[in-house]
Nucleic acid binder design. Structure first.
Length: 290
DNA sequence: TCTGGGGTCCTAGGACCC
DNA sequence: TCTGGGGTCCTAGGACCC
């Protein structure tokens, strides 16, 4: 099973002898009986087509104003034929920008893409064009991936009203840093690069990042770095719509040898206990004294 | 949907090293 | 003293996904 979001997953059934439709119906019935929820399922020879098949089934039940209990099967060999009449932006990787460019070229459906020479698409869209061509033909050989490594952890907040007050911005960054660090520690990870994200009142957004000499999972270090970065871009009193902080360059935390470093080892252990207490009894159970 | 939050991947330029 | 190529790391922005 590969979970792709909070409510979607791929299931590789190629090694199961039972008929695919039987498996799907059993799943759907189980979800309905146990969770009282509708679900849609697509069956195909690869992930791309299965995902689109799911959406097609879901849409057609919606059209009939029924709860979505779609079940769509695309027989092996029929992938391209199945995709051809569907709108181009149903394809994986075609967002608003690519969609607009395709429309300009007179391309509306996935079949229209498939009719273009691969070379032309590569000229127009670079490496993305190659995928576009392959996907439009129903070709996708990505395997099911059951485990992902976290690459980054971040927190961001959009304010209800634009904020000019340094105190509020710093307080927000402090909370966000705390949460990012907590998540790092919870997963036994640390990150080397701290990134600040900021959006002005005109919606322009920018990021500034810096790489630390050693990776960190520490609230305060992340916070101080974020504040420094903010100071490099924000003019005094400049209004802020959104602010956020993230950490990337993630790996296992490097623990200092505690030979002459008993202090930091001690504070790490203290942090561990604080984390455990907060996890169990809530954020308000314990705070640092000032 | 005049725009929320948390992610991934890609590109491009520059610094630096061998 | 100047030139060259390749690799890696870093930063910034953007497209895209759910």
């Amino acid at each position: 099973v590969e979970q792709i979001s909070i409510d979607e997953a791929f299931l590789d059934i190629s090694d199961i002898r039972e008929a695919p439709a039987r498996i799907a119906l059993d799943l759907q019935t189980g979800i309905k009986n146990e969770l009282h929820l509708p679900s849609s399922i697509g069956i195909a020879s690869n992930k791309l087509v299965a995902k689109i098949a799911t959406e097609v089934g879901k849409k057609s039940s919606k059209k009939k104003n029924e709860p979505p209990f779609g079940l769509t099967i695309v027989p092996i060999g029929d992938e391209a034929k199945f995709l051809a009449p569907l709108p181009a932006d149903m394809l994986w990787g075609v967002g608003p920008k690519t969609s607009a460019r395709l429309t300009e070229l007179g391309i509306r459906t996935i079949g229209d893409i498939a009719n273009w020479p691969e070379k032309e698409l590569v000229n127009l869209f670079g490496e993305n064009g190659r995928d576009l061509w392959r996907h439009a033909h129903g070709i996708d050989n990505r395997p099911i991936v059951t485990e992902y490594e976290t690459k980054s952890i971040s927190q961001e907040t959009t304010f209800n009203v634009d904020v000019r007050d340094d105190k509020t911005l710093e307080k927000t960054l402090r909370e966000q840093s705390k949460e990012v660090a907590r998540q790092l520690r919870k997963n036994d990870l640390a990150g080397k690069t701290v990134k600040l994200k900021i959006r002005w009142s005109d919606f322009t957004t920018l990021t500034r990042q810096t790489t630390l000499p050693t990776s960190t999972d520490n609230d305060d270090e992340i916070f101080r770095t974020a504040v420094k970065l903010m100071k490099t871009v924000r003019k005094p009193n400049q209004a802020v719509r959104l602010i956020g902080v993230g950490v990337s360059g993630i790996g296992a935390p490097v623990r200092q040898l505690s030979l002459w470093d008993a202090g930091s080892e001690k504070s790490r252990k203290l942090q561990e206990v604080v984390d455990q207490l907060q996890e169990k009894y809530g954020r308000d159970v314990i705070h640092r004294g000032e």
